[in-house]
């Protein structure tokens, strides 16, 4: 007896094999294929493949038959966010919240849309509400990490990510975040290790796989200036350089000042060329 295609498709979506889920769904007959649940699975698979236009269409088709379906409204919000239409993403998730205003998953998606649009304070209040609805939720914690990261509060982001890992040591998202934070401070060894772990936990995440390869590649000497700028911060490095060069000039060490200026210019051009190479490689 062959398994029900919907069950098979749901399983493929669950394990991160969206292309196989779509294959399974393609075998459904007309009526079953147009059922809201089939359209939900199709939309989730399409979202996973970043085909957001098609995913949004699948969600809308499903909502035509089930206008208050929370899962479809959630899917529509995610798809519209992926398309860059934040107004539509917000409208969809608010419609879902009108049905279930204390659902932590829905509140987290709304917080994500708000963060995407730059409304960080409101996103924090929405996450507080989600936390009250479901204390200790991993989803809330993950979004708090994003919020701290977007506020340039990397220390809080790292602390919260470690809390996330304490809850689930195999959380790919947490490893990815720690990898991104390490890369931001120029620690490419840690970045490559964390991102590599994230890829092992979630092999379907091609973007993280690319980031892991980039972090591994940037450990070589060629990327030294870029790691230096990332480690000490661009503004701080420039201020330091200008202060040192000015001091050398004003204290009469003309020869040393010329040598330091030439070294600084070479360092800058080197990092500029390295950044252009990184951009060309899609890093």
């Amino acid at each position: 007896m062959s398994a029900d295609p919907l069950t098979v498709a749901a399983r493929y979506v669950e394990i991160g094999r969206p292309e196989l889920a779509l294959q399974a769904l393609a075998g459904l007959d007309g009526d079953t294929a147009a059922h809201p649940y089939a359209l939900l699975l199709r939309g989730r698979a399409l979202c996973e493949m970043e085909r957001f236009d098609d995913a949004a269409q699948a969600a809308r088709d499903g909502l035509a038959d089930a206008p208050a379906d929370i899962a479809l409204l959630y899917l529509l919000s995610v798809a519209e966010e992926g398309r860059g239409d934040l107004a539509a993403a917000e409208a969809a998730i608010l419609a879902a919240l009108a049905e279930e205003s204390d659902d932590a998953v829905l509140l987290c998606q709304y917080a994500r849309v708000l963060m995407h649009g730059g409304a960080l304070d409101k996103a924090e209040r929405v996450l507080d509400k989600a936390d009250a609805a479901e204390p200790g939720s991993v989803g809330v914690l993950t979004n708090r990490v994003s919020l701290a990261y977007l506020r340039h509060d990397d220390k809080t982001a790292e602390r919260l990510t470690k809390e996330l890992l304490a809850l689930d040591p195999e959380d790919a998202q947490a490893h990815r975040l720690l990898g991104a934070l390490a890369a931001n401070r120029g620690d490419m060894d840690t970045a490559a290790e964390r991102l590599g772990t994230a890829v092992r936990e979630d092999p379907g995440d091609h973007r993280t796989a690319d980031a892991a390869r980039a972090a591994g590649g940037m450990r070589s000497l060629f990327w030294l200036p870029n790691r230096f700028f990332a480690r000490y911060g661009a503004i701080q490095t420039w201020i330091g350089a200008v202060v040192v060069l000015s001091l050398l000039r004003t204290t009469g060490m003309a020869g040393l000042a010329v040598a330091a200026t030439i070294a600084w210019v070479v360092f800058c051009i080197w990092s500029w060329v390295a950044a252009a190479v990184a951009s060309r490689r899609g890093w």
Partner: peptide, 10 residues
């Protein structure tokens, strides 16, 4: 739960 981006273009 009031919209913040209702007027925002895609």
């Amino acid at each position: 739960l009031r919209p913040s981006f209702a007027d925002r273009a895609p």
